[in-house]
Amino acid sequence: MDALKSAGRALIRSPSLAKQSWGGGGRHRKLPENWTDTRETLLEGMLFSLKYLGMTLVEQPKGEELSAAAIKRIVATAKASGKKLQKVTLKVSPRGIILTDNLTNQLIENVSIYRISYCTADKMHDKVFAYIAQSQHNQSLECHAFLCTKRKMAQAVTLTVAQAFKVAFEFWQVSKEEKEKRDKASQEGGDVLGARQDCTPPLKSLVATGNLLDLEETAKAPLSTVSANTTNMDEVPRPQALSGSSVVWELDDGLDEAFSRLAQSRTNPQVLDTGLTAQDMHYAQCLSPVDWDKPDSSGTEQDDLFSF
Rank of each mutant, 00 (worst) to 15 (best):
60 Q>A: 09
235 E>P: 08
281 M>L: 09
205 S>D: 09
159 L>Q: 06
166 K>D: 03
84 K>A: 08
14 S>P: 12
268 N>F: 01
49 S>I: 11
39 R>H: 14
118 Y>H: 05
217 E>F: 03
62 K>F: 04
158 T>R: 03
93 S>V: 09
240 Q>C: 04
205 S>V: 06
253 D>V: 05
93 S>C: 12
48 F>A: 01
193 L>Q: 12
144 H>F: 11
290 V>D: 08
259 F>Q: 08
102 N>S: 15
157 V>W: 01
228 A>L: 03
169 F>N: 02
81 S>K: 13
146 F>G: 00
28 H>V: 14
116 I>E: 00
86 Q>R: 03
28 H>Q: 14
137 H>I: 13
236 V>L: 09
60 Q>K: 12
261 R>K: 03
6 S>F: 14
101 D>V: 04
150 K>S: 13
267 T>E: 07
179 K>W: 09
283 Y>F: 06
186 S>L: 02
153 M>H: 10
170 E>H: 04
100 T>M: 09
288 S>K: 05
288 S>D: 03
149 T>G: 11
76 A>L: 02
78 A>S: 15
86 Q>S: 09
119 C>D: 00
14 S>Y: 04
151 R>S: 13
83 K>G: 08
53 L>N: 01
196 R>W: 02
70 A>Y: 02
297 S>T: 11
268 N>E: 07
257 E>W: 02
74 I>H: 01
154 A>S: 06
32 P>G: 14
200 T>L: 04
44 E>Q: 06
145 A>Q: 00
5 K>A: 09
24 G>M: 11
31 L>D: 14
285 Q>M: 09
131 Y>T: 00
112 S>M: 01
159 L>T: 06
88 V>A: 05
33 E>A: 15
199 C>M: 09
275 G>Q: 04
23 G>N: 02
254 G>E: 14
23 G>A: 05
214 D>I: 06
190 G>K: 04
5 K>I: 13
214 D>P: 06
39 R>A: 08
182 R>F: 12
180 E>M: 06
7 A>T: 15
146 F>A: 00
300 T>E: 02
120 T>H: 04
43 L>D: 09
59 E>Q: 15
281 M>G: 04
88 V>W: 11
146 F>T: 01
83 K>T: 13
131 Y>V: 00
13 R>S: 08
120 T>F: 03
7 A>H: 15
97 I>E: 00
283 Y>Q: 14
180 E>A: 14
273 D>Q: 08
228 A>N: 04
68 A>G: 07
31 L>V: 12
246 S>W: 01
34 N>G: 09
154 A>Q: 01
23 G>T: 01
214 D>V: 09
135 S>E: 08
89 T>M: 14
259 F>C: 02
224 S>Q: 10
278 A>I: 09
190 G>S: 05
70 A>E: 04
81 S>N: 12
68 A>E: 01
123 K>R: 11
48 F>W: 10
215 L>R: 14
121 A>Q: 02
81 S>I: 12
14 S>A: 08
25 G>K: 07
59 E>F: 06
67 S>V: 12
178 E>T: 08
285 Q>T: 09
242 L>T: 09
284 A>D: 09
50 L>E: 11
305 L>H: 07
19 K>A: 09
301 E>R: 08
136 Q>P: 13
226 V>K: 06
91 K>F: 06
151 R>N: 07
264 Q>S: 15
45 G>R: 10
197 Q>P: 13
282 H>E: 04
186 S>M: 07
40 E>V: 03
218 T>I: 06
252 D>H: 06
272 L>P: 03
127 K>Q: 01
146 F>R: 00
224 S>G: 04
88 V>M: 15
295 P>D: 01
191 D>M: 04
98 I>G: 01
210 G>C: 10
168 A>R: 04
35 W>N: 03
114 Y>M: 01
100 T>N: 12
127 K>H: 01
56 T>E: 14
85 L>D: 01
101 D>Y: 07
216 E>F: 05
186 S>W: 03
134 Q>W: 07
197 Q>R: 13
155 Q>H: 13
268 N>C: 05
34 N>S: 10
32 P>C: 08
304 D>R: 05
262 L>T: 04
158 T>F: 03
288 S>L: 07
11 L>Q: 12
244 G>M: 05
187 Q>Y: 02
305 L>S: 08
251 L>E: 09
125 H>P: 00
121 A>C: 07
38 T>L: 08
50 L>D: 01
12 I>S: 15
252 D>K: 08
220 K>T: 04
109 E>A: 14
24 G>Q: 08
81 S>D: 15
30 K>H: 08
245 S>W: 13
276 L>E: 12
164 A>K: 08
166 K>A: 15
12 I>R: 14
46 M>D: 11
255 L>G: 04
62 K>Y: 02
258 A>K: 06
67 S>L: 14
28 H>M: 15
85 L>Q: 00
279 Q>R: 15
52 Y>S: 07
